[in-house]
Nucleic acid binder design. Sequence first.
RNA 1: GCGAGCGUGGCGGAAUAGGUAGACGCACUGGACUUAAAAUCCAGUGACCAUAUUGGUCGUGGGGGUUCAAGUCCCCCCGCUCGUACCA
Length: 849
Amino acid sequence: MSKYNPSKIEKKWQNFWETNKTFSSKINKNFKKYYVLEMFPYPSGDIHMGHVRNYTLGDLVARYKRARGYNVLHPMGWDSFGLPAENAAISNNVHPKTWTEKNIKNMKTQLKKMGLSYDWSKELSTCDSEYYKHEQKIFIEFYKKGLAYQKETIVNWDPVEQTVLANEQVIDGRGWRSDAIIEKKKMKGWFLKITDFAEELLEDLNSLKNWPEKVKLMQKNWIGKSFGAYVDFNINKINEKVTVFSTRPDTLFGASFIALSPEHKLVDKLKKDYPEINKEINKLNLKNTNEQNIDKIEKIGIKIPLKASHPFLKNKLIPIFIANFVLADYGTGAVFGCPAHDQRDFDFAKKYNLEIIEVVSNEKNHVRKNKLESAYTENGYLVNSDFLNGLTIEKAKEVSIKELEKLNLGSRTINYRLKDWGVSRQRYWGCPIPIIYCDKCGPQTVPEKDLPVKLPDKIDLKKSGNPLLNQSDWINVKCPKCLQSAKRESDTFDTFFESSWYFARFTDPNFNDAINKNNSDYWLPVDQYIGGIEHAVLHLLYSRFFIKAMNKLNLINLNEPFKSLQTQGMVCHQTYKNSRNEWMFPKDVIKINDKFFTIDKKDEVSSGRIEKMSKSKKNVIDPNTIVDTFGSDTARFFILSDSPPQRDMEWTDEGVEGASRFLNKVWQLLINDDYKDIPYKKINYNTDHDFNIFLCTYKTIKNVTQAIDNFHFNIAIANIRTLFNELNFYKSLTNNNKIILKFCISNFLIILNPICPHICEEAWEMLGNKKSISDAPWPKVDLKYLNDNYITLPIQINGKRRAEIKISKSLSTKEVKNLALNHQNIIKFLTETPKKVIYIPHKIINIVL
RNA sequence: GCGAGCGUGGCGGAAUAGGUAGACGCACUGGACUUAAAAUCCAGUGACCAUAUUGGUCGUGGGGGUUCAAGUCCCCCCGCUCGUACCA
């Protein structure tokens, strides 16, 4: 009796798939296509459990769809530009390229050991100039069509990574990767006009029926559309005006101050005329260098010696402040304050003793009784507002805007929170921006014949500042226009640039243009995209924008890249600390009688919270160890079995062992009997047991199919286990029928195959099949068994289950009711005549007393 | 603050469209095998009561409601998690 030996059979079948090119994909218009994609990894060195979960989910879908008869594209590649390569270069003295390539090689080996059904012939790596040269062309196209431009703005500067970050990459005032406090800095950089697509990006969220609502909501909030008005306030003494954005133009009569952000352009001018402002303004800028309590910062302002005139009240002059709570890059960077109806303005007015004029009240004929305790922000009617009096807020907004337009002092507008995407990064290990600066001719795009602009191999990363800037032999070039000395752009692209279109490149990764439309038209959109929720706004919004922009430039025929999206939860593990309060690796901890000890048993270990696996807390399990010990089928089975994909899961030793035990039992089910000579065919049942095993097989096929279609893989596994238990039971019977057994086991293997492909291939072969199980079609349900004539019907009395009867479905309502009322367990409850008897055919019967 | 999601045994989690709550697994308990242990196999396992049964009561965060029937629908409250935040 041979033992289940995963390492042997897994290697065997991985080689088989590779030599037979089982998963290579070709366009075939006779079949419906299905494009499954998991977010490609950054090649950091080794795969981790998050990868294992992500790629197992994708592989299950890919193999399942293949069995369902789809022509499947399932590619994999490498998001290989990025800062860790530079950091590694500095600390280990290896070139980023060498480091990256080594990691790719290593991770590819690890992925192959998992037996994932990738079409490796489609592999791509974004740091390859064969990939990024197309990116440079796309950028030039964008530039020519006005979708890429250069400007000087205040940017988010990450002092640790020494680079600029996009708004999306700043989280709680910190760098999304470095966690460093972000500083504000004025710099010149390249931007992509994502704001041109704000409305489309928002509107088309509605078409993404198979995206999680949560992700769509996050994008919606990020885009942040709001309706309102621009209002001009003329300033006395000088010939200037301040334009503010307001969503509440109805409250204009309650305006009691104007507040400018410290970065407002009028402030620059004021600094010259009133030097004393300079000193004060530094107090406001505290915000940018302040530690954590950014959100708790006190609202402060500087009153300037100018006043603004009210657009509706010619004689009314309103004080102007420079205030730290006004955002420079939202709206116009200036607001009018209406303290009675906005809490921030209310607090500010209290502090600086400004007027508080109520202009909205919940009663039409408002008489002020008490002083306001806080801002009134509810619905109501306009008061103290001249021609707006008595109107609802909605109506007053309309009328107010009309009046502003009539006076030429404002207009209706729509404002978005979304800003243009800053793509310049002051890094080496990224795609060079194909621009040459000439003193005479200005910025010039690199001519197509000179593309790609390759990164120089020689680089000194140890000097501070932008590494490419210091690389004189690379940076100095001739201007393509006048041929005089010029300099290359030394910034490289944000690495989200690469991931914004890689999924389209996968459809023909070696094509001589960016996109082979013949292929992309067939394969795109991605039918199922799977990855982490952390990319809800970053990568997923950029990609949607990129495709819309490329579509507009006729580079691709596509409006939305990802038809269906699934976001997976995190892989968590218990944390451990030793008596010195140091984190412990789980592999160095043993459990004895509910207590934990170090592996040498000398020190007691305390167990902490179950948290996301992270290197810093050491609660990591190395997938390679798991695959080597238990096999990849076990790892795949366990990672899918316990929790629904969207939710966080806990990795436990017991869980893995349970999965391993199951696969061993599957092996035992087959190994002791030789099925090779038993014919594979469907025959009719003779005994109740025969019937039951057929019924269970078909029920399972039905349930598993439904569960996989709904992405409920843990339920699929529960059903598969139930069938397995029944198969084991049937096999143990003395009067079992080997032909029926072989038939049911075969079906069992086909539905298990997307989860545990190696053991299923091996078992399939043991059953005597000549062709691979990967080519076996998904089984069909025989409805004859599911629509069986006999069912068990529960009988309730007043909604409580009291008995059950086995009945034929063909019985009439009257007959069923009679049977129920005369059931021995029921009779004793019938102390009175039932008021009602409700029979829901084939489901339940309820007797109401 | 705002927004979203969740709350079911000791644990992870099931429960089409309102119709037998706790599938499947983990852990645990008992038994078989063994000199013993591990592994494996068999059985049990929501709580409580009980005449120990093929009996009963309670039970899906708490309170109320709709219904013949509520984990599921409606209202109020509590707790947890995630996202987001001076957005004018």
